[in-house]
């Protein structure tokens, strides 16, 4: 590249930067402070538009430069921690992976994840979700007492493939926000918890399937699901919790017929 060409490219880049600096995008952000009382409101912020900015960058810009009181959760900025889930224009998204350029020049409406109680602004209360995860016994259950000296429990790649997909869940709760059944029935243990149960049920090292199958066979577990499929549609990690629920329904149905046809059988 000649010197003049290099200079021209630099000028073009600078003018692009300059033009970009003038551009703004509007964020309508849900605000709610229970300590202050009153109803939730939406506050409009004009944020500089950058094509490489994600929604989380815009929220951080607001917090750093305009309004330090805006409250939201975030941590890793790379779609791993699952903290920054919010409703973006009515759809549950990880804000660290949702680019402004996909919405520009239209305004964005940012709300806390649907179907959860709001603590403040964009922060939700998720104690109930954690309890649901714990309720399905998400750990390897063994009938024998193993000692590290006994060596590792080995698996073939095929055995690993049975459940690996369900280990990818980052507990971001987008699936709970997307699920219309969860909106109606807060007691429904929901997509991520059932996917987690399947993660252990399908693990060749686990021996707790019988215990978990009883937990999954109750109405508030797999049977509240009507296979709308939105949980899998919004999952940022392609875990496909809807498939996990359908698998659990099949095993639960086999258990039901066994109980019905062989009531004297093993409980």
């Amino acid at each position: 590249m000649s010197a003049s060409n290099g200079a021209a490219a630099q000028t073009t880049e600078e003018s692009l930067e300059a033009r970009m600096a003038d551009k703004t995008i509007t964020l309508e952000v849900f605000r709610y402070d229970p300590a202050a009382g009153g109803d939730p409101t939406f506050q409009r912020y004009d944020v500089p538009y950058r094509s490489d900015w994600v929604v989380l960058d815009a929220l951080n810009w607001i917090k750093d430069t305009t309004d330090g009181s805006l409250t939201f959760r975030w941590s890793c900025r790379m779609g791993v921690c699952g903290s920054c889930g919010m409703m973006v224009n009515g759809l549950p998204k990880l804000t660290c992976s949702t680019f402004l350029k996909d919405y520009y020049p239209d305004p964005l409406r940012i709300e806390p994840l649907a179907n959860f109680p709001v603590q403040r602004d964009l922060v939700i209360e998720f104690d109930g979700f954690v309890e649901k995860l714990k309720s399905i016994k998400p750990w390897l259950i063994r009938n024998d007492q193993r000692d590290p000296a006994d060596g590792e429990l080995r698996q073939t790649p095929k055995q690993l493939a049975q459940y690996k997909q369900y280990t990818m869940c980052i507990n971001c709760m987008l699936c709970y926000s997307a699920c219309p059944e969860y909106a109606f029935i807060p007691g429904f243990i929901g997509p991520a918890a059932i996917a987690l149960a399947q993660r252990y049920n399908l693990d060749s090292r686990d021996q707790g399937q019988a215990e978990r199958r009883k937990l999954l066979g109750v109405q508030e577990a797999v049977w509240e699901c009507t296979f709308v499929g939105e949980c899998s549609a919004v999952c940022p990690k392609h875990v496909d919790p809807a498939a996990a629920i359908q698998q659990a329904k099949v095993t639960s149905t086999i258990d039901w017929y066994k109980r019905f046809l062989m009531p004297w059988g093993k409980k």
């Binding site: 009883k214 937990l215 066979g217 109750v218 109405q219 049977w223 329904k249 639960s252 149905t253 258990d255 039901w256 017929y257 109980r259 019905f260």
Partner: peptide, 14 residues
């Protein structure tokens, strides 16, 4: 832990 009978109707649906 009461097991749901929904399994029966779901099996016919399926």
């Amino acid at each position: 832990m009461k097991q749901s009978n929904e399994a029966f109707w779901w099996s016919l649906f399926s």
